[in-house]
């Protein structure tokens, strides 16, 4: 039985959905964070399957490797034994349900209208997802948005440093 890309896609998608559902269904926040890491990893695998290697690896480094480590960091500091039920009364539950339904409706409505043109397979360039193509696009066609995003990141970084800076008279142990 030959292993084809669409079979791998089905398996990967099933795994991704399971781990993504586990993020919200599992009660232990530690398990939630870890299944979120798994979800990001599987999403990276989806990128690899689409031959978008650079995007996949960057997704892995940035989300699974850096951001989720910080999430885990925070969760590890909390005392997980005390699960506080009282923050979730019926009103918040109903509110969350309604909000969720509204977002689901919005997504379905927008996807239903979407006309996604499939590129003809003979014109498909295998190097579309490669870093060279991506670099060409970013630094030629989309240079201004790219630079604006870097400015945004720079501002965010300066802000983070100012927030984290030790103030006069403040003591750290």
């Amino acid at each position: 039985m030959p292993i084809t890309a669409d079979k791998i896609w089905y398996i990967l998608t099933a795994l991704t959905l399971i781990s993504a559902l586990a993020v919200i269904l599992v009660r232990n926040p530690m398990y939630s964070v870890l299944s979120l890491v798994l979800t990001f990893f599987l999403l990276s695998c989806h990128y690899f399957l689409l031959n978008a290697q650079f995007l996949g690896v960057v997704n892995m480094i940035v989300y699974a490797g850096a951001i989720m480590v910080l999430f885990l960091f925070v969760v590890m500091f909390l005392n997980l034994r005390e699960y506080r039920e009282e923050t979730k009364n019926n009103l918040t539950k109903i509110g969350a349900f309604v909000m969720g339904l509204a977002i689901l409706g919005a997504i379905i409505a927008s996807i239903r209208r979407l006309q996604y043109p499939m590129p003809p397979s003979e014109q498909f360039n295998i190097k579309t997802g490669y870093v060279e193509t991506l670099g060409d696009l970013l630094f030629r066609d989309y240079l201004l948005p790219f630079e604006l995003v870097t400015v945004l990141f720079f501002i965010a970084m300066v802000g983070a440093i100012i927030i984290g800076k030790r103030e006069k008279g403040e003591r750290h142990f």
């Binding site: 890491v37 690896v57 892995m60 490797g65 480590v69």
Partner: peptide, 12 residues
């Protein structure tokens, strides 16, 4: 970058 990504996962 693959090496780099796996190393960043290694801390888990």
């Amino acid at each position: 970058l693959w090496v780099f990504g796996i190393v960043s996962l290694g801390v888990y």
